[in-house]
Design a protein around this nucleic acid. Sequence first.
DNA 1: TCAGTATCTAAGCGCTTGCTCACCCGACGG
DNA 2: CCGTCGGGTGAGCAAGCGCTTAGATACTGA
Lengths: 224, 224
Amino acid sequence: MSAQAHASGEDSPTNGTGSALSGESWNDITPDAARRLVVAAVEAFAERGYHATTTRDIAGRAGMSPAALYIHYKTKEELLYQISKVGHLRSLALLSEARDAAAPAADRLATAVRRFVRWHAEYHTTGRVVQYELGALAADHYAEIVALRRRSEDAIRSIIEEGVAAGDFDVPDVSGTTLAVLSLCIDVARWFNPRGRRTPDEVGELYADLVLRMVGAPRQPARP
Amino acid sequence: MSAQAHASGEDSPTNGTGSALSGESWNDITPDAARRLVVAAVEAFAERGYHATTTRDIAGRAGMSPAALYIHYKTKEELLYQISKVGHLRSLALLSEARDAAAPAADRLATAVRRFVRWHAEYHTTGRVVQYELGALAADHYAEIVALRRRSEDAIRSIIEEGVAAGDFDVPDVSGTTLAVLSLCIDVARWFNPRGRRTPDEVGELYADLVLRMVGAPRQPARP
DNA sequence: TCAGTATCTAAGCGCTTGCTCACCCGACGG
DNA sequence: CCGTCGGGTGAGCAAGCGCTTAGATACTGA
């Protein structure tokens, strides 16, 4: 397979948003206790699911009493909403950035997949909550999140459409393939295990290659 | 509710096990009330998740009082276990059959994916429970199910390995690609919507094509 | 005819849930 | 030196949970 050497600089074709640096993106939540609660909630939701997680458990992990949770968040659902929103915005930013880069469609698609997958692997707990606990959101919050997801889908679809138009891709069913690509990437959050054989970087590389095959792009161009 | 019509015949290249006929496979559960409970539980678990589903809800959907549930199943978890077991056995049978067929690896892989995906689309409620509610199983039940999943993975891996050995496939990372193929198929249960544009057959066909591309098989052989 | 069995229900037990309330505490400006 | 205020607590409420029990009903074979 392709050498995964790629020194750090590797991507960040555009960094207009300045989002590229952030690791887990809870850093800008204040006060400190509110941030600890979000982190605790992500862990708990990812481990046991939203409904199986108790507010006592979340508060406990954050090192405070059950009642303290309600100083910072009105309900347990609001915590989920916060997590879901931040996660979806991050996904969308990632994919939009890749779509808008000045590069051939194949490169942009590979970059999008590589980063999207890497994020889902690296922050697979967050990813799990973001991708699999939507159903627990209140109706209005759910609608808002679904709109963000649609925009993410559009970003991928755009790249594939442009690749087809440029004659770089061979894709009989663009919207079906878009769905499959996104689905493939998202599911990484479900199975990824940080103690497994593969690093997030390796999975990203593997998946970028697989997706290029799916769209019938000529074999991976040598990367600088 | 689920039209279980499904004209059966369509493919079935091998039908040694005789399992090919079953549609939704709850038909052989007796007595009738126990079957109704399983069907109700599948619907409820798929809609809201295991933990958000109450025994009162399940019993209600099955048209009986909450207490009646416990005549047929010892606990709510046993219901989940039953569903999970039947579903995983069905998946495994599907994949094993495809693996053992007398045909080139590409055909066997395409058949495996086509049927696996079709099943996850057609019975996406069951699929949802089977694939996404494992975590709610008791420890011993969980271990048993995980063993079944490993055997399913082995079936796919075998086909890919044999395709590589025969020179039909070009796969740099066999076990990674196996994971990706399974992941892609499984995730159909999450997003498939019976009121959407695509039928289960169409999704199966699309995915079989995509997977052949992923393993670098020469373009799809004409099917009879 | 009638005990035995299988199936079901109304009522409810003990416990946990999400969330609230009355109160406490240390930092800090005047 | 005190009042205020953001952040915290212990206790607990109403509701809902999984599950049990005592008893009703219908069907069976002898």
